[in-house]
Structure formats: structure tokens, C-alpha cells
């Protein structure tokens, strides 16, 4: 039924860019791919969604319980992906938080990591946590949060690491060395969770 990747986040986090890179990888790898990106006011801090379907599929959207991999770039947005996790599927959660105004003034209304972990556990998934913002900042390329996630995605989806780096080079024209560092950092974290 193909390889289905369900990506959520908020505008500005590079969710759609991430999806486009994965789609470019699939093409480079000689596979069929379909890409859905939610358009709308996501650009302005609204929720974003990107679905990548690799292989022999014909529908444009990932059916419930069918995502081989769920990726949340923003912590609270992850709950919107719960129903798509395939039994036995992987989940990668970024610790980054983007607060809308009512949360800024009442941060206690924002769900904590434990609550989210617990929810995913209940569905049978074991999320992998990444502090992509911290890692990207350490590489002094804070914008590369999504590329850190791409590293982890590459490992968990068993994508070819070298080929993905080639695709990255073609698709990320600026600061490529730092982007590759971000990518490798994400890859290694995911590797660490697999031991």
C-alpha cells in the first residue's frame, strides 16, 4: 500500500518544504509519488499539513490508520495526526512549540510533552522525540529544524542516506554544509533510538 508520510506543523516551520524534498527523493529513487499540501493561511502561523505517498497508490490523501510515518514539527499540532498512525507505524515528534496569542497569555493551556506521549502510547505508537530547534541552533542554522527532522525521517523510513544528501544538495541551495550537519544530527538521534 505504499509508504505514507503524514507531516504536520505550523506555518513557517518548513513542513511543505520538507514534503517537497521527500517527494524529490522518491522521484530520484525511481518511485511513484503523490504530494498533497494544505494551502490556505498556513503561511501566517496557521496549521500546515503535507502528505507524501510513495509507491502504488492512487488516492490523493492518506486514509486513517495508514501513515507509515507521522512527523510533527510542532508539539501540539501532533494530536491532529493521531488518527493517521498505522498500527506499528513510526512517529517523530519535535519539541518545538509555537504559541498563538491566547496561549502566550495562558501557557498552562498548552499540552505538555507527557500528555502527548501518553496519547500516542495509547494508540500503540512509540514516539521518538527530537529537540530540532536546539540542534538547529547548535549548528547555528535555526531555520534548519525541518532538515534535522529529515535526518530522522530518512533513518526511520529506510531511505538511502547518501541519496537523500544528494537530493538535499539539489534542493537546498544555501548553507548546504550546515544543512547536511543538521540532517546528520537528526539521523544520528534516530539511530540512537533504534539500538
Amino acid at each position: 500500500m505504499g509508504n505514507n508520510l503524514y507531516l504536520v506543523g505550523v506555518g513557517g516551520q518548513g513542513v511543505v518544504r520538507l514534503g517537497q524534498i521527500i517527494a524529490a527523493y522518491a522521484i530520484e529513487d525511481g518511485q511513484k509519488v503523490r504530494l498533497f499540501k494544505k494551502v490556505g493561511m498556513a503561511q501566517r502561523g496557521g496549521p500546515t499539513l503535507c502528505e507524501i505517498r510513495i509507491g502504488e497508490v492512487s488516492g490523493s490523501r492518506i486514509p486513517p490508520l495508514s501513515a507509515d510515518l507521522v512527523v510533527a514539527m510542532e508539539l501540539a499540532e501532533s494530536v491532529k495526526a493521531l488518527e493517521y498512525v498505522k498500527p506499528g507505524g513510526n512517529v517523530i515528534l519535535n519539541k518545538s512549540r509555537v504559541y498563538p496569542i491566547h496561549i502566550m497569555t495562558h501557557p498552562e493551556k498548552y499540552p505538555g510533552e507527557e500528555v502527548i506521549e501518553d496519547l500516542f502510547q495509547k494508540t500503540g505508537a512509540k514516539p521518538i522525540w527530537i529537540d530540532a530547534k536546539k540542534i538547529a541552533s547548535e549548528i547555528s542554522l535555526p531555520i534548519a529544524e525541518n532538515i534535522v527532522m529529515l535526518g530522522a525521517i530518512t533513518l526511520l523510513s529506510s531511505f538511502d542516506k547518501e541519496l537523500m544528501i544528494e537530493v538535499l544538495k539539489k534542493n537546498v541551495p544555501r548553507q548546504i554544509e550546515k544543512n547536511i550537519s543538521a540532517f546528520l544530527a537528526g539521523y544520528e538521534i534516530a539511530e540512537g533510538t533504534q539500538i
Binding site: 503561511q43 496557521g46 491566547h102 502527548i116
Partner: peptide, 27 residues
């Protein structure tokens, strides 16, 4: 599969309360 989804329903309901609204406003 429907049964799986049914089992998921209470979890999804729980998740519903956690969704952070992101109202669109001006840029």
C-alpha cells in the same frame, strides 16, 4: 479496520480537547 478506528475514537476525543486553536488574523 473499522474496529481499529472505533477503538481509537476515545483517544481522538481526548486529543480533541488538546488541539490548540490557531485563529487566522492579519500578517
Amino acid at each position: 479496520q473499522d474496529k481499529d478506528l472505533e477503538e481509537l475514537m476515545p483517544i481522538l476525543e481526548e486529543a480533541q480537547d488538546l488541539i490548540v486553536a490557531r485563529p487566522t488574523s492579519f500578517c
